[in-house]
Simulated scan of single mutants.
Amino acid sequence: MPLTTLLDALFPRGHAITVNDSVLTGTATTDDGEVTVIGTTDKIEVGVDHALVLADTVLASTAAHPQRPIVMLVDTAGQRLARRDELLGINGYFAHLAQTLDLARRRGARLVTLVYGESVSGGFLSFGLMADHIHALPDAQVWVMDLRAMARVTKQPLEKLQALSLTSPVFAPGVENYVAMGAVQSLWDGDLARHLLEALRAPADGDHRAALGAERGGRTLAARVATAVSQGNA
């Protein structure tokens, strides 16, 4: 879905969102009031400069309106693999962005993510994955690591991982598999403004992704193992 169409569908009451170097920042109006909007477009590879702009917007929103919700719109091909960004310590910039979102949450802001394009690796982990609830459009693409890269990292044959991906969502890219694992709470279709309102009104009562993954059959052991560890039985 084109970005302008998406923004009009999410915020029919109006929005003031600018796009600079494929980074979205601004505000929008919902039936429940104003929200801060941050995000990415054009399948951008998120670098240190982008992370700073996103973090600055979050901090400004938290300082001026501590309890104003923050809506994150995600379309990223991952983190920028450039020498300059690596030498500057891109991991530290991403950690700073994640910390600003954690601060916003602790100050009372609701955090909602909508993946409308791609969401890959560090470019997604550093802000979109920090939300209280993560949702996606049906045609969105979500993955953390390509199977070829996973094969190099795990030292497992690509053919073995491809076979595992046929039966286990953990090894398979695609938004449906991330719904099955509980990482994506739901897919939005139809009235996007209504979906957004429901997400903003839903209680933020902890991280239930492992439990959702168990219910949906995508992650059968995560919740059980986490419970055992927390109870000292592991």
Rank of each mutant, 00 (worst) to 15 (best):
P203L: 12
L187C: 11
R110I: 03
T41F: 06
D42Y: 05
F171D: 08
D205H: 09
N177R: 07
E159D: 12
V184E: 13
G206L: 10
L3H: 02
R13Q: 14
A131K: 08
S126V: 07
M72L: 10
L161T: 03
L88C: 02
V23D: 00
A149G: 08
L166Q: 14
R209E: 13
L81M: 11
V112R: 12
A172T: 00
H50R: 05
S230Y: 04
R194I: 00
H208L: 07
A77D: 01
L187T: 03
G182R: 00
D8P: 01
G213K: 03
T5M: 07
D146P: 05
A226D: 10
Y116K: 10
W188E: 01
L59A: 15
A64H: 10
A55P: 02
H50A: 15
L87Y: 08
A180M: 08
D21I: 01
A109K: 03
S186Y: 01
G128W: 04
T57E: 14
P69G: 09
W188V: 03
A140L: 04
T220K: 14
G123W: 03
G123E: 00
L59Y: 06
E86Y: 09
Y93L: 07
A82H: 13
F127V: 08
A223L: 08
A109L: 07
L200D: 04
T76W: 02
W143Y: 15
L111E: 02
L164S: 04
V112E: 05
A183Y: 02
L111V: 06
I38D: 02
R194N: 05
V142F: 11
V120R: 14
L114H: 09
A9F: 12
R224C: 03
V115C: 13
T18L: 01
A9S: 15
R194M: 03
R152P: 00
H133L: 13
P2A: 10
R106T: 14
T40D: 00
T76Y: 11
T76L: 11
A183G: 07
G92T: 05
L97P: 02
V37P: 03
A193M: 06
P203K: 05
Y93S: 10
V170W: 12
T113S: 15
G33W: 04
L81R: 10
A77L: 07
A202N: 01
G217C: 03
S230H: 13
D146E: 13
N20S: 14
H15K: 06
P169N: 12
M72P: 04
A226M: 14
H65A: 15
A131E: 04
A63T: 13
I44L: 15
A172Q: 13
H50W: 06
P138C: 06
F11N: 01
A9K: 10
M145R: 09
N20F: 10
A28T: 02
L192S: 09
E159M: 08
F171Q: 05
L59D: 12
V112H: 07
H208T: 12
M145W: 02
L54C: 08
V71N: 05
A136V: 04
L161H: 05
S126Y: 02
T100I: 04
S61K: 05
S126L: 11
F94H: 09
L97Y: 01
M130K: 15
L197W: 00
H65E: 14
G89V: 04
A60P: 03
E215D: 10
H135R: 13
S121E: 10
D31R: 11
V184H: 08
L103F: 09
S168D: 12
S22H: 06
D139M: 09
L73R: 02
N91S: 11
A226F: 11
A172Y: 01
L114M: 11
W188Y: 09
